[in-house]
Design a binder for these strands. Structure first.
Lengths: 130, 130, 130, 130
DNA sequence: TTTT
DNA sequence: TTTT
């Protein structure tokens, strides 16, 4: 019923772009998200979380995000089931992004504002000041 | 840049419907959200949080939610400034809803599924199973 | 850096309790979380999301939650890697709970308040009313 | 019952430190959070959201955050009611922080990791790798 | 492996 | 009262 994920982390590599047979773009990337605490050996651990972004948001991710960049992601956690080549059932967890914000390199050479993109970006404000 | 609020609480009264001059519906309601801890006097405290829902989501809220109902709200926290009658500046905080889920009365008399509404509800899935 | 998950769903079965060699309790359960949209075949899909709760929160979950119950979970998404019997690397995703709220059966026979438990539950308020 | 806020924004000024009569530190600051959409006049709007951090987290905020810094905040939305000098009831909204992450200046001169602080920071991991 |  |  409710499924909300918010992550801040760094891309482990450049996003991978794919296109459906219908030409719908989808970007895949992995965020390295440090855990808040050290483990019992005093080491900082990291979760490597797969993310996907569809359509315009996917294109924006593919065009602008690169390995090492810091990003904030909002989305929902999706569990996909599939059958592996050996016939066993496997499950894949990934965050389907509703929005992706770029948190480093806040200003580009032309002095433009920090890039920030949402799946539902539009010229119409979400609430009108009537 | 990122502004995400998730609340679960009960409506303190029936939602109030208004319409902009252009006829855009907007529902206002207040959620009573119990704090997780008791205060030093051993009393449970409650935050009364104002929420608004625009357009179709607003109509759904106005048509289905009533005083006392349990709801989960997702949205963003908005601070509006205005001038009071005495000329002083005031600020109002409210959560602009992206989605509202109804958490009690899970099945109606006809055995229908639990009602659940999102601002961006559509027949198109957010991610296509290609 | 930041890793926050909020879910509302129903338990697919009773929680499973385990204890570490040191006696630390941990409860495992799976939430069925309906997706907000129907897919292209007009079917409602569901994500089955594994959750774990440690220590006192785990005991509370084990003592009170049962198959079919509606719950709200807050936590962080953890990806664990392990080696399968066939020597291949596998990954498991699970939500490590910070808090679990029980959303149905809001009042018990004695008229007590809705049960609600957090990992950090305490008599000390998080912010003091000085 | 559930009250979760996640914000990313910039401090509008240096945090203000106070101490309760018992000596408990509390830091107050305001985050400027840009809205994702432009309004009908094509202007980007901003929400100015008051935040407070108690105890050790408050001290860390006071010691490290300054005007203009980019930060991610997790917490809960609290509505405080009080009586103004003219006898009218007023309400104040503020986010009580559970954790604050510093998002710019990711590495210090010594090459140390990005600073990141949580109210519940500890050497004990939240889940043990048993 | 799945809940309503 | 506001940040970039």
């Amino acid at each position: 019923m409710l499924n909300r994920v918010v992550l801040i982390g760094r891309l482990t590599r450049d996003p991978e772009m794919r296109y459906t047979p219908q030409g719908v773009p989808v970007a895949s990337f992995t965020l390295a998200v440090d855990r808040p605490f050290s483990n019992q050996q005093g080491q900082r651990e990291t979760d490597f979380i797969d993310c996907i972004a569809w359509r315009k948001l996917g294109e924006t991710v593919g065009n602008h995000l690169t390995k090492g960049r810091l990003a904030a992601v909002e989305g929902r956690l999706q569990i996909r089931s599939y059958e592996a080549q050996d016939g066993t059932k496997r499950r894949v967890a990934e965050v389907v992004c509703d929005s992706v914000r770029f948190l480093d390199r806040p200003r580009d050479a032309q002095g433009g504002a920090m890039e920030s993109f949402g799946a539902d970006e539009t010229e119409l404000p979400d609430d009108l000041p009537f």
